[in-house]
Design a protein around this nucleic acid. Structure first.
Lengths: 343, 343
DNA sequence: CTGAAAGCGCTTACAG
DNA sequence: CTGAAAGCGCTTACAG
């Protein structure tokens, strides 16, 4: 009776197992962690009882002595919410689903409120992955001193990162447009302040150059970080002397707005203007026409980010590595041959 | 020199502060936690030194003695990923952003692998919110014995929950369709196995009844839990004797598929058939035409879920409460008056 | 092969 | 008002 009561209130500890098996708690610890040689008989007995009792280690106690928590932090910049929601969600899901089989939990935080530094300082995590493009050096540094860090979709000198081949992806997208016969190819981005977007711009430039097309400032527009960025940028382009026959947009969300704006202006996509995005966000398959875009392997990036973090947790002296994933152009309905009639 | 070295390797503890101020560690603890009376002079001195040293409590140690971790778990059914990604992401974000100012961290997990039970048993969280519609009694029960639980978008006897007025929302949506002149109003759902969807069906029935419209089995279709569910359901409806002039769809994602299927059949939305969804998911503003739908206040639900959980963590004897949020019909472009010409 | 002891960093009665 | 001690549940040298 009292036994039952006790069990209900308190969780099972190694002491309980020790008593039941008739050994010392330290022996239970060794058996369960597989440390040190010991008779496989007592080991088996202990494991069996632990199982029977439904024992789980108290990670607070375990962590206090081992300095490992079995958790990792995943931090995302608030700015990416909710606009790029599905993009970053996919990465986070991938991290979670690869962390779980390794016995790790994932603490999810947003960049405001220093809550990421807090979780590190409070010793709640063994490492952290920082997702997104706004992670500054000042933010990363204090973390780096304490704990392994992996950057996703960003890069800082001397810090591990998993990124995507933005230059190559953009290059391929623009080259594809050129292959379709386009020569007046616009470039639209929310902002040039993001590393990823600048890299995509570089790819755009390189593709033009490679094919002997001169860069035209009038075909480049920055819509700003806000809703409606795409339509602001389109207005800017349309105000110029020359109309593009195709536009490469630095991310899908803005590309969708660009499509809307083009349609609102009474033009057709892709008949009048082809549009190609970047990311292969969920919305790319919802807009009309379905968006041609550059696929970013978010799942693989998330998986790799966790794996890399795990390696660093195991050995923090590993030299910083930058892992770059290739992209893939996904051709859908928003792009087509340049119309003959147009200039 | 050695001092610096020491500081760098080890984190600051109350012992360090105690030494510096010249008091006992227990005094530091009391000062920092504001427990017990003490001279406000030493208290201030201690707090100041803690601040200077950049002290953060080791939550593992703190949690070991207080049995509080300062973390809560948020668990989502794997099935909701990625289809309903943005829907549940918004709730999770809301939970995170209301948890942070309270000093709490959020552990995010998915329902597979028992990783949710694991985090509870390992004492990593003080409470958990279970999001989504697939949380069974068997899953919730073992958690309930250990820790406070709040359900979101679901309900179980005797468990705290925050939900949405599915019946009322569906009622309003269908009544709106009736006001537009529609009489042959279809109902499409992925499945009737979800509580939410059944409730929405109830609202549909009640609205018809209230306005003296007979329920017609031929106008009801279940597309199944899969991609393309909406188009499967549409085929079923179109195979029937009578064509609906409006369709109420139990969730937005399926509603989008329904719109696609209608357009693929050569009909127009809303001219030929009006479509109304439920959720006000991000995609509702991306489809064409923009989807009329029932807004679910995900942000407020997430906030309230955390607040409720916090209350239960403070006092686990609070009687179970079911909080139901009202919905709001958001009229966009996928719905319109019933065309005169049609039968 | 296994036990007793110390320690991880905190809090909390208990003295004084 | 404040200090010394015990304890939270685990691990890890250290003995034996």
């Amino acid at each position: 009776m009292t036994d039952w009561y006790y069990d209900f209130i308190m969780a099972i500890t190694i002491k309980d197992i020790a008593k039941r098996v008739g050994v010392a708690p330290s022996t239970v610890s060794r058996a369960l962690n597989g440390r040190g040689r010991m008779s496989s008989l007592t080991r088996e007995k202990i494991r069996q009882v632990a199982q029977e009792l439904g024992y789980y280690p108290n990670m607070l106690a375990k962590g206090l002595t081992t300095r490992k928590t079995g958790s990792v932090g995943v931090v995302i910049d608030r700015r990416h919410i909710p606009v790029e929601r599905s993009f970053y969600s996919a990465i986070i899901e991938a991290i979670e689903s690869t962390a779980t089989p390794h016995g790790y939990h994932v603490i999810f935080a947003t960049l405001k409120n220093h809550s990421s530094l807090k979780m590190v300082k409070e010793r709640k995590v063994d490492g952290v992955v920082l997702i997104g493009t706004d992670i500054s050096d000042e933010l990363a540094s204090p973390l780096l001193e304490e704990i392994p860090v992996v950057l996703v979709d960003n890069h800082l000198q001397g810090v591990d990162s998993v990124a995507v081949d933005n230059v190559g992806g953009a290059y391929r997208a623009v080259e594809y447009l050129i292959e379709l016969g386009h020569r007046k190819i616009g470039f639209i981005t929310e902002t040039m302040r993001d590393l990823s977007f600048r890299e995509r711009f570089t790819g755009y430039q390189e593709a033009l150059k490679k094919h002997g097309i001169k860069l035209d400032e009038q075909l480049i527009a920055e819509g700003g970080r806000q809703r409606g960025s795409g339509s602001i940028a389109i207005e800017e382009l349309f105000d110029g002397k020359i109309l593009p026959t195709a536009i490469f947009v630095a991310n899908d969300y803005t590309a969708v707005e660009v499509i809307w704006a083009i349609k609102a202006a009474g033009l057709k996509v892709p008949e009048d203007i082809s549009v190609v995005g970047f990311d292969d966000n969920d919305i790319a398959r919802i807009v009309e026409p379905l968006l041609t875009t550059v696929h970013v392997p978010r799942k693989r990036m998330g998986e790799e980010a966790f794996r890399r973090l795990l390696a660093l947790i195991g050995d923090s002296t590993l030299p910083p590595t930058k892992i770059v994933f290739p992209t893939e152009l996904v051709i859908r309905d928003s792009s087509g041959y340049k119309a003959r009639s147009t200039s």
